[in-house]
Amino acid sequence: MSDKEWPLYEVFIRSKSGLSHRHAGSIHAADDQMALDAARDTYTRRNEGVSIWVVRSSQIVASDPAETAAFFEPAEDKIYRHPTFYDMPDGVENL
């Protein structure tokens, strides 16, 4: 066994056509192709997907937990940004 860890990849799966890719988890792999295979073998064994994205975890730019207040709290009291003031037309189910 090697004592060097392979890089971490994040895995995104599209469960069916028309839906967007969703984060499924992460895997270790030595290169991109291996990451794609490992994602397929780890996360789509039970027919979960029709498309896979993998991306090196180190390539993801993430928001800083220390800045949560500045980042997200200003949106909390802006209720006018929610589309709750519209009347729903009859017969529309998925809105």
């Binding site: 066994m1 090697s2 392979w6 895997i27 270790h28 792999a29 291996m34 295979d37 490992a38 073998d41 780890t42 064994r45």
Partner: peptide, 12 residues
């Protein structure tokens, strides 16, 4: 197998 990912691949 030394790596979980390859372990799963082999078992599959």
């Amino acid at each position: 197998y030394p790596e979980l990912e390859e372990e799963l691949a082999n078992a599959n």
